[in-house]
């Protein structure tokens, strides 16, 4: 475990905390894409299939349980909670799941390290995580003003990606570890998706303005 990986995990955790804060205290999920949240729940469900069979560390197990539990509870809140679901911006959150899920699954069937159920699903989760933010970014573009918590939520998610990529580069040079090029590609695509958002995030921060993404 290096500092980049740990910082990445913590910013990932922060993004979830920010989102839960919004849902629990303000009882609002305005500006949050249910599509993206459902995709993340699917990402964690397919990636952590080995959670009870392969033990890595207590840290890993606990974090996996947190990511699984929070992602499914967020989906539950947005769909079922009597107040929270009313704030869901359904009309603007129109991106279709299967445009992302289907290509990712087909790609995982073709490009994987081993053709086994678990390996294919693990690869699928990587591909899907890379693009799962897209419905959220589309929704941000359609929103007139992005509130602080939503902006910070996406910021922390992007930061998590950035730190993970640095961690990969670090591990590449310091450990006897390598990754398949498909893993690198998925990781780079995922991080690159945030570049545009970061530009406008810092711009609004610098100018002390409300965050707004050009359509």
């Amino acid at each position: 475990m290096n500092i980049f990986r740990l910082t990445g995990d913590l910013t990932h955790l922060m993004s979830i905390i920010v989102l839960l804060l919004k849902i629990h205290t303000i009882k609002s999920c305005a500006g949050i894409s249910l599509k993206t949240q459902e995709l993340y729940a699917l990402v964690f469900a397919t990636r952590y299939l080995d959670i009870f069979t392969t033990y890595i560390s207590l840290y890993n197990t606990v974090m996996k349980l947190i990511f699984l539990g929070t992602s499914f509870s967020i989906v539950w809140y947005m769909r079922r909670h009597k107040t929270v679901r009313l704030s869901y911006d359904k009309n603007n959150d129109t991106f279709r799941h299967y445009f992302l899920v289907l290509p990712c699954f087909l790609l995982a069937l073709v490009l994987n390290n081993r053709f086994t159920v678990r390996e294919v699903l693990w690869t699928f989760s990587l591909y899907l995580e890379a693009v799962a933010i897209i419905p959220q970014l589309v929704l941000l573009q359609r929103s007139k003003n992005v509130d602080n918590l939503t902006g910070n939520y996406v910021f922390f998610l992007g930061a998590y990606r950035g730190f993970y990529l640095i961690n990969w580069i670090y591990r590449y040079f310091t450990e006897n570890h390598y990754r398949r090029w498909i893993t690198w590609m998925a990781g780079i695509v995922q991080t690159a998706l945030y570049v545009d958002f970061f530009y406008y995030y810092f711009k609004s921060w610098k100018n002390n303005e409300k965050l707004k993404l050009p359509a």
């Binding site: 990932h12 392969t54 990511f67 591990r171 390598y178 990754r179």
Partner: peptide, 10 residues
């Protein structure tokens, strides 16, 4: 060659 895509990450 053993496959190596790290699964110790989250």
């Amino acid at each position: 060659v053993e496959e190596n895509d790290t699964k110790d990450e989250l």
